[in-house]
Design a protein around this nucleic acid. Sequence first.
DNA 1: TGCAAAATCATCCTTTCGAGTGACGCGCTC
DNA 2: GAGCGCGTCACTCGAAAGGATGATTTTGCA
Lengths: 154, 154
Amino acid sequence: MFVESGMRKHALLYGLIAGVLIAVLKAIEYRWLVIEYSVEIYGSLVASVFAGLGIWLGLRLTRHKQRVVVREVRVSVPVDFVRDQVKQESLGITPRELEILELIAAGLSNKGIAARLHVSENTVKTHSSRVFDKLGARRRTQAVQLGRELRLIP
Amino acid sequence: MFVESGMRKHALLYGLIAGVLIAVLKAIEYRWLVIEYSVEIYGSLVASVFAGLGIWLGLRLTRHKQRVVVREVRVSVPVDFVRDQVKQESLGITPRELEILELIAAGLSNKGIAARLHVSENTVKTHSSRVFDKLGARRRTQAVQLGRELRLIP
DNA sequence: TGCAAAATCATCCTTTCGAGTGACGCGCTC
DNA sequence: GAGCGCGTCACTCGAAAGGATGATTTTGCA
């Protein structure tokens, strides 16, 4: 809308100036002609004036054309964790085992995990042993590291 | 250089076309004039032709002078780790202790760390005990978790 | 309803950790 | 040169963790 009205305004202005110029030229043509200036000079004058106007209009038409360049800016933003459920299932890790792994990663002891989940410590040890086996880990710290690498825990 | 020569070529071309047109107009002017076309028609013709040429030249001149608008797009990228050395010093954690903490986080056993660093396992235990104490951790998994939270390790 | 997977608990045994304590050498500073 | 921070090593003891194995209960699904 704005661009259209702007262009229309330019066109109107251009036509107006052209008309006025033609009128002026017509008004003074006799005077110039009678003092023996040839028509080619007259033509050159008109040509140069309108060429200038055309150039001006052309510049005006493209002045606001902008080229948008999209630049990727690397910005440090915490990556929101998405669990790799495919890998979880391919390893055969059960939800409960993953739950124990998360609590291990949180730094809890087996006893603490047992208390948190209201199960016996033996149960926690069973789950952790199983998840260690499935991850190929021998220590809980190693299990945490592998779980992170495999995107099973944040 | 390229832009300059391009503009010069345009100017030359424009001048050439203008000259030819003027010559043509001059050559046919008598024929037109004798059949009683007024000079204002002639002027209008020249005006419109050169206005068109001007517009074309104007467009040509600014074709490659587009304003570049840079739109920055935020891209999520894994956060590159920066160690909080202030916190490290405020906790009085030595470089060696931090080194042991990193290896603990990597999932190594004390024996493995000792082998990696060519020191005795007792030394590793001493360092780890100290860093646990400074972090307020009771287990190595907890130390890893706290170390991460405090931005001491990745 | 019946089976398979998952979850639960246990027992025995070994390894690893963690706490506590003490000590030695080295380099730096006051 | 005394003091201090740091890194090193040793020893003991108890707690925690891990491996192996077996068993029972719960649960989801065919």
